[in-house]
Amino acid sequence: MVSLDRFDTFKAVVEAGSLTAAADLLGQTRAVVSFNIKRLEAELGVTLLTRNTRRLALTEAGERFYQRCLSMLEEARLAIDEARSEHTELKGTLRITTTVEYALAKVVPALELFRALHPDLNVQLSTSSTHADLISERFDVALRLGRVLDSSHRAVQLSTFGILPVASPAFVASVVPIDSVHALEQTPWLEHGRVGELTITEVSSGVVRPYQPNPCKARIRADNSSVLQAFALTGQGVAILPDWLIEEDLRTGRLVHLLPEWQLSRQGVYALYPDTRHLPLKVRVFIDFMKAYA
């Protein structure tokens, strides 16, 4: 049976880029690292790395094995963490990724309470408009909004939120009256790149119909709700934005909620985590906390 230590050595060589750098990283001699790589290749019966005087390169088999290697080492680490952890004493580091808007509005306040409960657990929070790769970027959990498209990951719904069509008072005054869904659909709008098909429901009657804004009327497309909020505030068009993002804008009148008698499809907040056999206790506890907090 191949030793997991050799998997770890192989991973270090790939990521360090050389036997010497990997040896420094592992606290071993270059000779020991070289021996373990050769033994690993012999036990597997394939060449994993091509070597010359200047650099190391993965073979095709090596590239496939490296991806498997990452998965197996992570599985082993998770199993060890779960065996050693106590529910009341979470330790180590929890790596989270989400959007900057949701982080500022919801995650930062939640983490203040969560860390008070688990002071020995370190938290790394990364924010981005793009969806991070949980495996290659080593995140424990992603908090995502709207639709879940990552079929390779597990997903838990934490909560839902409303999305509202809004515009600045100046913009509303400059266009034909927005007094029906059809009129709203024909009004110049600001498109969010990750909002999919929507329905709209008349609150009083419960009548549901598709919401289909005129594609020719899309003035600006962006993948960030804060950017669309800024465009809406400057009178560029109608934006569909999360209710938690624009509460203050609505309260102060900087934005106007259009057609409040109609309601757009509610959106979900999901916690995504890698589909591993052993879910780390820190991830499970964090997800349970966020479900209760949300």
Rank of each mutant, 00 (worst) to 15 (best):
V2C: 09
S3Q: 08
S3E: 09
A12P: 06
A12Q: 09
V13I: 12
E15M: 05
G17V: 09
S18Y: 11
T20I: 11
G27W: 00
R30S: 09
R30E: 06
N36M: 14
N36H: 12
R39M: 13
R39F: 08
E43Y: 08
L48I: 04
L49I: 14
N52H: 11
N52W: 09
R55P: 10
L56H: 07
A57Q: 13
L58H: 11
T59A: 05
A61G: 06
A61V: 12
G62D: 02
F65N: 01
F65D: 00
R68V: 10
M72S: 06
E74W: 03
A76L: 04
A76G: 02
R77G: 07
R77T: 06
A79E: 10
E82N: 14
A83E: 13
R84E: 13
E86K: 12
L90N: 01
K91N: 13
K91Y: 02
L94P: 00
L94R: 00
T99Y: 03
V100T: 15
A103S: 07
K106D: 08
K106I: 08
L111A: 04
E112Q: 12
R115P: 11
A116T: 15
L117W: 13
H118K: 12
H118Y: 15
P119W: 02
D120Q: 11
D120M: 14
L121D: 03
L125R: 07
S126D: 06
T127R: 04
L134H: 06
S136C: 10
R138Q: 08
F139V: 10
V141P: 03
V141F: 04
A142D: 07
A142M: 10
A142G: 15
L143K: 00
L145P: 02
G146H: 03
G146D: 03
S151C: 14
H153C: 13
A155H: 07
V156R: 08
T160I: 10
G162R: 13
P165Y: 01
V166Y: 00
A167C: 01
P169F: 03
A170L: 04
F171Y: 06
V176T: 13
D179L: 04
V181G: 04
A183V: 12
T187L: 02
P188N: 03
W189Q: 03
H192S: 11
G193A: 10
E197C: 01
E197S: 10
I200G: 00
S205Y: 02
G206L: 00
R209H: 05
P210A: 05
P210K: 03
Y211Q: 02
P213S: 06
N214D: 14
N214A: 08
P215M: 10
R219N: 08
I220R: 11
V227L: 09
L228W: 01
A230N: 15
A230L: 07
A232V: 12
L233S: 14
L233G: 11
I240C: 09
I240V: 10
P242Y: 01
I246N: 01
R254P: 11
L255I: 09
L258N: 10
P260I: 04
S265W: 05
G268M: 07
L272D: 09
P274T: 03
L279A: 06
L281R: 11
K282A: 03
R284I: 05
F286T: 00
M290R: 01
Y293H: 15
